[in-house]
Nucleic acid binder design. Structure first.
Length: 570
RNA sequence: UGCCCCGUGGUGUAAUUGGCAACACGCCUGACUCUGGAUCAGGAAAGUCCAGGUUCGAACCCUGGCGGGGCAGCCA
């Protein structure tokens, strides 16, 4: 029997699960939490999201999608000193832009402050929490070190009644910042530092972006996160590796409040590292504050807003996130993979236009002075639906400086004295004369065109190279910003004795002010993606105005010639 | 010299849970091409950190090393 649609190949293609999916499927199989899957993305609103967050977003929202569950957006806003509404808005925008929809309204840890407070009182009543009057430095000293146990606070054995009264007074604002804290009573000699009577609440007379001045005590991350998960019905609380040592504490707090069979579970994965960039919020903030880049959305930044401005698409980032996988070992992803992801996406969709970045004038000496032709050209060879347009052709043109060499090496297929090339969608031309200025610089080429070779005329003559070009009199003047990696070193933050800023790439931004574009680009709209033929993918920058279009280079095209010439150079 | 986590081509992730180490990026050939793009065909590249053990059989299990990362905020 030959049942066609079941080749042995597709049979073998059973998808492999990442370790988190494996855990989830086992949980479902065993009927934990009624087989439900509910995840959450829990950013702290203290900065802009970056590509590392995108990995987490794709993971959490993706898991919910895959297992027909839900995913919440929850702002982890327990520290009013650092958090701001501005960040809340940018985070929501970035997640939306990536194409994800959270379940219901965004949640906030601050929504749970009252409940958290009640649980804190409950712990006090159970004798599992106490108020400590010591200053931060003393508490830190008593905590011991990873190799030595801590010592017990002199306030550890206050009565339940006294603790309760003190804690209530803390809430009422009777004490100054730092005067008292509420601590969990666990184990000062635990080998896990986080179990040595961790602080649950600290006093902060600060205005909170949502609760205003209602509170002057704020819960710590450890006393907020697991409980927030519990309140929201989260089943799988996925976070990065540095929280692994917090898990026993996550579970300890849950042990105190969980009443039924439902219980959230923390799972840790390795955060994303990308080559040739830095990913920590602190370092990114430094780049912004020291004006090394032009803001959080500078197209060289690995922030989501930066990538968006650079011209990355949501699909490309999501595909990238899929490909890098999820595991627990430290990793550094080659930025080339990210670049591949955009090229792959844009290749399918971006319309092709001709833009000359560094113009070199070409005069066709045998072309009539006052003639203009409208030549038809295809918008996207990858997508027949994209149709065609016309581009004006005339006697005076611009071609790319890089497309001409007076003394070309062997594998150079472009224009040179006496040589022929095809002008894309136009004619074959031949270089007859090189005109130089006083300084001996090439200034203009005098060429002839072959009227028999018009594109689409059926002419069969072949030439080795095809160049992009623009009619001089019709050309649109545009600004083009060429971006390159921000750092020269694959791991700028990985040098013990050197500051990451020592590895900044001085050529990460080159601004080209007199580029020549074909007129059709006059209607380009902000955020549109294009391929500039033979050069790369570009998008319209928000700095663009009607009279002054500005394009950002998202990523160059793969360039075989660049590789050939580089390889022969060494 | 505490506790926790992790070691598979250059990079990342797999290997139906003990059965021929695969996929992607990158790199190199070649074909094709009115984009030196795309596409297509092929290639090099790990024998799974090391040493033992269990087993007919180990990337996978056990023991011991070695290496990397994390933990001593009233940050998250």
């Amino acid at each position: 029997m030959n049942t066609t649609n079941q080749s042995p190949d597709t049979e073998k293609t059973k998808e492999s699960l990442n370790f988190i999916e494996a855990i989830i499927e086992e949980d479902i199989r065993e009927g934990r939490n009624d087989g439900k899957v509910h995840t959450r993305f829990p950013p702290e609103p203290n900065g802009y999201l970056h590509i590392g967050h995108a990995k987490s977003i794709c993971l959490n929202f993706g898991l919910a999608e895959k297992y027909h569950g839900k995913c919440n957006l929850r702002f982890d806003d327990t520290n009013p000193v650092k958090e701001e509404e501005e960040y809340v808005e940018s985070i929501k925008e970035d997640i939306h832009w990536l194409g994800f929809r959270w379940e219901g309204e965004p949640r906030y840890a601050s929504d749970y402050f009252e409940q958290l407070y009640e649980w804190a009182e409950m712990l006090i009543q159970k004798g599992l929490a106490y108020v400590d009057d010591q200053p931060a430095a003393v508490i830190a000293a008593q905590r011991g070190t990873p190799t030595e146990p801590g010592i017990i606070s002199p306030y550890r054995n206050r009565t339940m009644e006294e603790n309760l009264q003190l804690f209530r007074e803390m809430r009422e604002g009777k004490y100054r910042d730092g005067e008292k804290v509420l601590r969990a009573k666990i184990d000062m000699s635990s080998p896990n530092m986080h179990m040595r009577d961790p602080v649950m609440y600290r006093i902060l007379h600060e205005h909170h972006h949502r609760t205003g001045n209602k509170w002057c005590i704020y819960p710590m991350y450890d006393f907020a996160h697991g409980q927030s998960d519990y309140i929201e019905g989260i089943t799988h609380s996925v976070c990065t590796l540095e929280f692994e040592v917090h898990r026993p504490l996550y579970d300890w707090f849950l042990d105190q409040i969980v009443t039924g069979p439902y219980r959230p579970r923390q799972i840790e994965f390795a955060r994303l590292n990308l080559s040739y960039t830095v990913m920590s919020k602190r370092k990114l903030l430094e780049l912004v504050e020291k004006k090394i880049v032009n803001g959080w959305d500078d197209p060289r930044m690995p922030t989501i807003s930066g990538l968006r401005r650079r011209g990355y698409t949501p699909d490309s980032i999501r595909n990238f996130a899929d490909r890098i996988g999820v595991a627990k070992r430290d990793n550094v992803i080659d930025v080339a993979l990210l670049e591949h992801a955009v090229r792959e996406d844009l290749n399918k969709t971006a319309l092709r236009y001709m833009v000359v970045l560094k113009p070199l004038k070409v005069t066709l000496t045998n072309y009539p002075e006052d003639q203009t032709e409208q030549l038809e050209t295809i918008n996207n060879p990858e997508d027949p639906e994209a149709g065609t347009r016309t581009v004006p052709f005339a006697r005076e043109l611009y071609i790319e400086q890089d497309d001409f060499m007076e003394d070309p090496p062997k594998k150079f297929f472009r224009l040179a004295p006496g040589r022929e090339v095809r002008l894309k969608s136009a004619y074959i031309i031949k270089c007859e004369e090189v005109v130089k200025n006083d300084r001996g610089e090439i200034f203009e080429l005098k060429c002839t065109y072959d009227p028999e070779t018009r594109s689409g005329s059926g002419a069969t003559r072949k030439v080795k190279g095809t160049l992009h070009w623009v009619s001089a009199s019709h050309a649109l003047d545009v600004e083009v910003r060429l971006y390159d990696r921000l750092f020269n070193d694959p791991d700028p933050a990985g040098h013990k004795d050197k500051d990451f800023k020592e590895f900044l790439n001085p050529d990460s931004l080159k601004i080209l002010k007199d580029c020549k574009a074909e007129p059709a680009l006059a209607t380009a709209k902000k955020g549109d993606h294009y391929q500039f033929q033979r050069i790369g993918y570009f998008t319209v920058d928000p700095d663009s105005t009607e009279n002054h279009p500005v394009f950002n280079r998202t990523v160059p095209l793969r360039d075989a010639w660049a590789r050939i010439s580089k390889n022969s150079n060494r």
